[in-house]
Write a protein that binds this DNA or RNA. Sequence first.
DNA 1: CGGGGAGATTTTAACGTTCAAACCCGTGGC
DNA 2: GCCACGGGTTTGAACGTTAAAATCTCCCCG
Lengths: 336, 336
Amino acid sequence: MATLKQVAAHADVSVQTVSNALNAPHRLRPDTLERVTRSIELLNYRPNRNARSLRTSAVELIGYCVPSWQGGQAHLVMDQFLHALCAAAETTGRHILLFTAPAGADGMSVYEDLHARRLVDGFVLSQTETHDPRHGWLKEQRIPFVSFGRVWKESTQPGPYVDVDGAGGCAMATRHLYDGGRRRIGFLGWPRTSGLAEDRLGGWRETCVELGLPVDGLAVHCVEDTFDEGARGAASLLDASEPVDAIVALSDVLALGALRELNRRGLAAGTDVALTGFDDSPLASVVSPALTSVRQPIDLIASELITILTGPADSEVPAERLLQPELIVRGSSAPG
Amino acid sequence: MATLKQVAAHADVSVQTVSNALNAPHRLRPDTLERVTRSIELLNYRPNRNARSLRTSAVELIGYCVPSWQGGQAHLVMDQFLHALCAAAETTGRHILLFTAPAGADGMSVYEDLHARRLVDGFVLSQTETHDPRHGWLKEQRIPFVSFGRVWKESTQPGPYVDVDGAGGCAMATRHLYDGGRRRIGFLGWPRTSGLAEDRLGGWRETCVELGLPVDGLAVHCVEDTFDEGARGAASLLDASEPVDAIVALSDVLALGALRELNRRGLAAGTDVALTGFDDSPLASVVSPALTSVRQPIDLIASELITILTGPADSEVPAERLLQPELIVRGSSAPG
DNA sequence: CGGGGAGATTTTAACGTTCAAACCCGTGGC
DNA sequence: GCCACGGGTTTGAACGTTAAAATCTCCCCG
């Protein structure tokens, strides 16, 4: 555990010169820089981050509240997201600090505490809820943050965010099915109360209208994110007087439920009925036929989040980035 | 951002007395404690962790390398694990710092760096591989760590670990199927090269032998962790001259593949053929019939990891904890 | 009434770093 | 030959905390 002082003694310069060698090398004469660098290498010196943070009051840590997996949709792409976020932070020399907090306003004291004790510089928020209280509060406290996901149903977004265009994704899937010859495309969704669900539903509906396809009675609202509900929803779409020839599902889990229902009825997914999911979770490539799914650009999301959070905070207008997802075409949506 | 100094001025005591009020309240006279406490409250003081860490050289942060999700089995319970680890750390006032590192020996410099720069006190390892080089190296460097998962195929485990008794879990599943009247129980596994796979296979085999059940030709080694492979494996068990009446799968994904194959053949899972998975991933409760699965005690694992890591490091014999999983019985394993 | 102690509080110093100011020294202008 | 200049380096101070030692206060006992 060498310190600046020891390196300085070894290189026969002052402590500050060693510090400069690391933080402002241009200030040193080439030969001193060389000498100091050798001493640093030799003693295997690493700056003590605590001392540095104390002096500069910047910890280079970003807080992320790890969602509880309880209730409702499983976070099937959480690990991908965390990995990406971590990697993005590391490209700027920062790291991610995890913590847990109660949902809603109760959790806010945790955010405040972490910041006040200088464990983190700022926060990345996810699992954004309708009327999420965190954003406004953090903004008011002038604590740096950026949100993955819009705050739905607010007139103005409080603070910077990165989000994926769910409507665009579903539009893309719908158009892809249309291009494959499908003309009666159903939608498997969640209840309207979720802003995310409404966004995706809108993408499907508008595209259908645009393409002159029917939409009435073709949107099913599943009550929870399970295979069963997906299967039930698919069944009702298939049992209609005029059955669908394709289904856009709002999640991979619903899509897999639909896939099961198709199998059960002896219908070939991708041939008789085309099917798409959302999220491109690990599951999508593990079933057969493999599931066509809308993939969120996880790496890009993460790097945008970090860029915004660590970028200049002076701008008055908050950064808002809406990213386009990508359609990963697999067997389940072969042309009919 | 109040500091000790400001609180001290406000309470009209010395800085050290305020520090003592927080770290050793018994040293203060009750009335001074009361007065200082009021000042702390009033000024909303929070100790600066960087200053504290600098002085005490303990950062109260634990490093965890977030696994890359590439290749092979999806980490379907990763988010549960992280949440639990985080919560466990917080009960001791610590937090989890995430980082990424290349697999194998290449990643070791990352561990060294994080520790040398004092970003973390120690590490929790997971995704332990056969002959994992990290453990021995960390031990040699005297960097505190604890491993989730044994280092397979080492004569002696280098350092403390917490693991789940996979053999015990599969034994439990097998016995449960036996108790439900099943007498010909197959096993869906992975190749023998994985220590984990061999452990679980052993649990099934030994229990069958013990119960007088056949094992020859009843273990199938799937080459990857996909629905397809699970289905293929199940098919081969069902096509045998004497077909199985139950299947123990090494993972939930394989089990769901088997479930699909059963459905395809018009066999009722839980009635005609009983089925169990492993990990109790979010998927298990989302299919129907819901999947009986062996659940690892995630919360207990996490708290044991933290206890060991933060406990006294002086003991010569490393802590080794082998925890028993729990069988979550659902519809897929109803008595036959 | 002086000394011994225990308990409460303060003083001093240090953790390892960086910022700001000061210093040193060679160069070039006048 | 003096002075201003500027690049390179050092000095001094500070970030906010805690450990250890020093001091102060009060009380008890011989």
